[in-house]
């Protein structure tokens, strides 16, 4: 190789690397290093301290909000899985081509609408003078307005709605690769619906279930709009605590510590789940 071509090749590499490094360095890596450093600094003096983390572990309020957020995220993820799995199964293995395409569009369409609009549509349905309240009075089931907003169950409905797609599509993708003849073979060998489901279909869909569950869990944990709009003052979501520290109390250091806790926890949680279920994410994706 000529020295000049080698030189030019090195030059080209640097020309391509520069924008990438600027982008990921300035807009992702350095901000997160800054967040990490801030979380160990005293608010006034800037000296090293663990007080921001101590504030979290010593306060039952913050701890409870965190535990609540995690519990709700897990419950909602499981609920989304139970709703999505039959849908994914029916779409891939029961519906014909045209019906399948139609059902897919119907599941993808709400996703393209902003998450804010999604939450708003549920507000329209659930608020005190909303559509559901009107419907119940129209049917004579009740005679006064009922507030369906600002309950835990409202939050769950909203979260399931926003994450349905992220669970259904990965499961559809993994079920698509399952040969129908395998299911038929299981029947021919005397299996019934449930044993075929347990022995053939669910194991084959496991990677999709894993990817979907991880995505939905992370989305729930990091959710802000759906939770604050549908839960109101009762939402008590951990992202809201981060917002409050940063924007309302101007306490960047405390907010940074909360951010680091949320990030560390979600990465650890996903890693442990992968270890327990012996799944390999790179393989699944």
């Amino acid at each position: 190789m000529h020295l000049s071509t080698r030189f030019r090749r090195g030059q080209r590499l640097w020309l391509l690397l520069l924008p990438t490094l600027l982008w990921i360095g300035l807009l992702f890596v350095l901000p997160h290093i800054k967040l990490f450093l801030l979380s160990f600094m005293d608010r006034r003096s800037g000296a090293f301290t663990l007080a921001n983390y101590a504030a979290f572990f010593n306060s039952s309020l913050y701890r409870n909000v965190f535990v609540r957020t995690t519990t709700f995220s897990i419950v909602t993820t499981l609920l989304t899985l139970f709703i999505s799995f039959p849908a994914a199964f029916i779409i891939t293995k029961v519906l014909g081509r045209k019906m399948k395409a139609l059902a897919l569009i119907a599941i993808v369409l709400p996703y393209w609408v902003s998450e804010l609009i999604q939450a708003f549509t549920w507000m329209i349905l659930f608020r005190e003078t909303g559509v559901l309240s009107y419907l119940l009075q129209y049917l004579g089931i009740t005679h006064h307005n009922i507030e369906f907003l600002y309950h835990n169950s409202t939050i769950v409905v909203g979260l399931v709605y926003t994450s349905l797609l992220f669970m259904t599509i990965p499961i559809i993708n993994s079920l698509d690769t399952l040969d129908d003849s395998l299911i038929e073979a299981a029947y021919d060998l005397g299996g019934d619906f449930w044993s075929t489901m347990r022995e053939i279909i669910i194991p084959h869909a496991a990677p999709g279930i894993m990817v979907g569950s991880i995505m939905v869990f992370m989305l729930n944990l990091g959710n802000y709009v759906t939770v604050t709009l549908l839960g109101g003052k009762n939402s008590l979501w951990f992202t809201e605590s981060i917002y409050n520290q940063f924007i309302v109390r101007f306490n960047q250091n405390q907010g940074a510590a909360f951010g680091v806790i949320l990030l560390t926890f979600s990465v650890l949680f996903v890693w442990i789940v992968l270890k327990i279920t012996k799944q390999d994410l790179t393989e699944a994706m």
């Binding site: 807009l27 992702f28 901000p31 990091g222 917002y243 960047q252 990030l263």
Partner: peptide, 19 residues
Amino acid sequence: MLGPLVVPGVVLGTSILAF
């Protein structure tokens, strides 16, 4: 490079704001 898709938007927003 895949990181920004995984990190919650709230954390991404606050870290960029602080930086």
